[in-house]
Amino acid sequence: MISTGDLVTRKSYSNDIIFRVQSTGGPLIKLMGEHIRLEADAELRDLQKVTGAEYHRIKEKVDEQESYSYRLFRQDYRLLREKRESEAGNGYSSSNESNYFQIPPRILHVDGDPLFLKKCIALYEQLGLQVHGQYLHEKEMPSQIMSLIEKVHPEIVVLTGHDSYSKAKGSMRDLESYRHSKYFVEAVRTIRQKYPHFDQMVVFAGACQSHFESIIRAGANFASSPQRVNIHAIDPVYVAARVAYTSVTSHINVWEVIRNTISGESGLGGVETRGLLRIGIPYSKESYDDL
């Protein structure tokens, strides 16, 4: 018996991905990826419950991938900081002690999956970034994104959740062949009507197998998925973090952004973008927290 909340795999796909059952009403079972941002439907007979041992085996592998990406980001963060201090010279240092403070941008992360949202918020906090998280179904994003932006006043907006491409619906070039890509496109287009400058507000949008080209043309700085592959739940966080910790005086090499992600260049891409970290002097321990 398959019930809502159960962990399952699909026999027709060689049990390659673990899904969580979202609903069981109707002829097809609605599924959400447990570790990746993929939404799918399947017949009951195609599903196989995941055993505890199998889940923990896959979870260990996922945890290793996440830890590796986190270590890569921390290494890059240290290099970015050393570069800022070197370029600043004596202006930002005194007696080998930091004499400056830094202000990362505010981030709005809108997610179509409440469990993934919780996980992403924890990672933002671990990285020392200020974030406002909001759960919204992908269909609601175009109509509600501007009210959230006006409330939060972010400099980085992340729009993500679940998506998928269906060959049965049409060509890979056709936006209607995708479950939620059109909503990401509409939401990005809505943002760009008010904030057309790519360096004034940096936007990431997309999920697994999303229509990368349409999202980029709509005005996103970064998007998924160039090769229509699945992306990991936390990949959008690393994209936002790289922008947040790059100085406003520097442009970001797109490859340097995506190399720390689990999905890599097959799953993520973007356009040249300026960083959003601002440096100030002098630093006073009584007045500022070194972010």
Rank of each mutant, 00 (worst) to 15 (best):
residue 28 L to K: 14
residue 28 L to Q: 13
residue 28 L to I: 03
residue 29 I to R: 00
residue 30 K to M: 04
residue 31 L to S: 04
residue 31 L to A: 05
residue 31 L to V: 05
residue 32 M to F: 11
residue 32 M to D: 02
residue 32 M to C: 06
residue 33 G to P: 11
residue 33 G to T: 12
residue 34 E to R: 07
residue 36 I to N: 06
residue 36 I to R: 09
residue 36 I to E: 09
residue 36 I to L: 08
residue 36 I to A: 04
residue 38 L to M: 10
residue 38 L to G: 04
residue 40 A to E: 09
residue 40 A to I: 01
residue 40 A to H: 01
residue 41 D to Y: 10
residue 42 A to V: 06
residue 44 L to Y: 05
residue 45 R to Y: 06
residue 46 D to E: 15
residue 46 D to M: 05
residue 49 K to L: 13
residue 51 T to D: 14
residue 51 T to P: 00
residue 52 G to F: 03
residue 54 E to C: 02
residue 55 Y to W: 09
residue 55 Y to H: 14
residue 56 H to F: 09
residue 56 H to I: 08
residue 56 H to A: 11
residue 57 R to V: 08
residue 57 R to D: 09
residue 57 R to N: 07
residue 58 I to T: 07
residue 59 K to V: 04
residue 60 E to Q: 14
residue 61 K to G: 00
residue 64 E to T: 12
residue 65 Q to N: 04
residue 65 Q to C: 01
residue 66 E to K: 10
residue 67 S to I: 07
residue 69 S to F: 01
residue 72 L to W: 01
residue 73 F to H: 06
residue 75 Q to M: 12
residue 75 Q to V: 12
residue 77 Y to T: 03
residue 78 R to A: 13
residue 78 R to Y: 08
residue 78 R to F: 08
residue 79 L to N: 14
residue 79 L to T: 06
residue 79 L to C: 03
residue 79 L to W: 08
residue 81 R to N: 12
residue 81 R to Q: 13
residue 81 R to D: 07
residue 81 R to H: 09
residue 82 E to R: 11
residue 82 E to T: 06
residue 82 E to A: 14
residue 82 E to K: 11
residue 82 E to V: 04
residue 83 K to R: 14
residue 83 K to V: 02
residue 84 R to T: 07
residue 84 R to P: 00
residue 84 R to S: 10
residue 86 S to L: 14
residue 86 S to P: 01
residue 87 E to P: 04
residue 88 A to K: 07
residue 88 A to H: 06
residue 88 A to G: 15
residue 92 Y to T: 05
residue 92 Y to C: 06
residue 94 S to E: 12
residue 94 S to V: 14
residue 95 S to C: 11
residue 95 S to L: 15
residue 95 S to F: 15
residue 95 S to Y: 15
residue 95 S to A: 14
residue 96 N to F: 15
residue 96 N to E: 15
residue 98 S to K: 15
residue 99 N to R: 07
residue 99 N to S: 11
residue 99 N to K: 08
residue 100 Y to R: 06
residue 101 F to Q: 02
residue 102 Q to I: 12
residue 103 I to L: 14
residue 104 P to Q: 10
residue 104 P to C: 10
residue 104 P to G: 09
residue 104 P to I: 09
residue 104 P to T: 07
residue 105 P to F: 08
residue 105 P to G: 07
residue 106 R to V: 13
residue 106 R to L: 15
residue 107 I to M: 10
residue 107 I to D: 00
residue 107 I to C: 09
residue 110 V to N: 02
residue 112 G to Y: 00
residue 114 P to F: 04
residue 114 P to I: 11
residue 115 L to S: 11
residue 116 F to P: 00
residue 116 F to R: 00
residue 117 L to E: 02
residue 117 L to C: 07
residue 118 K to G: 14
residue 121 I to W: 03
residue 122 A to K: 14
residue 122 A to N: 12
residue 122 A to V: 05
residue 123 L to Y: 03
residue 124 Y to E: 04
residue 124 Y to M: 07
residue 124 Y to K: 06
